[in-house]
Amino acid sequence: MQRIINALARNKNTVLFILLLIISLYFLNSRSYFHQTKIAKLSLSISGILNNLSSNIIRYSNLNKENKLLIQENLILKSDLIKNKNIETIKSKKEIYFPFSLINARIVKNNYNKKENFVIINKGKKDGVKKEMGVITSNGIVGIINNVSKNYSSIISIINSNIKINARIKNTNYFGAIGWSEKKINIMTLEDIVSTAKISIGDTIISGGMSSYFPSNLEIGKIVTLKKEKNEGYYSIEVELFNNPSQWEYVYVIKNMDIMEINNLEKKN
């Protein structure tokens, strides 16, 4: 306290000056309407800048939390969306049955420059991830889980030459198998589409739903080239993915609740 008083006494001229300046500004403010509006405008813009700055800082520190909330919300919306799409296709059926649920995950490592690419995510056995579950992003397919540890799982990415996924051309009944072209990171090839099919460039490819990994009607990509091979009854089709594999970050693991039942049936055959 003594030191504060000493400092004030040493700078008494400055203190007096600032005090009187404040008084005179107040005087100016109260006497002239013109200056009043000008000062009000000035103080508003300064406080606006300061508030914006502080809110930006606060928002930045809350970003992580917000992100998590958004992912949670996305998860719910995404599962609803898939459910809805399935409802649309089976409108005629009275009973709606949807055996899939989602687990959200973040990619820890993403290979995309090899022939056999793998993705590692931060969810594992602990979170209910199991082998042979499908993995999707908000706008496409990522791959199938092939290995699970306690906290992490590895995925055979769709840009891996060992994987083929059942696919269908939207609004038609032509089913095929989609696999990586091995040429470009986001170009896939679609096989087994007969050359009599009426399709054209730009058509959307969706998941076929004829496997236990993925529900049907998930969008995968669109046709970019379409060629009829000579002496063969099939098209050779190149498909561009909607989601570039190098940009995957948040993914969803699809849990098929009926997988045990399906597997048991398969074994019996």
């Binding site: 000056f17 300046l21 200056h35």
Partner: peptide, 13 residues
């Protein structure tokens, strides 16, 4: 309005 006060004060400082 107060211009003389402010200018004198600043000047004296």
């Amino acid at each position: 309005s107060g211009a003389n006060t402010i200018s004198c004060l600043i000047l004296s400082y």
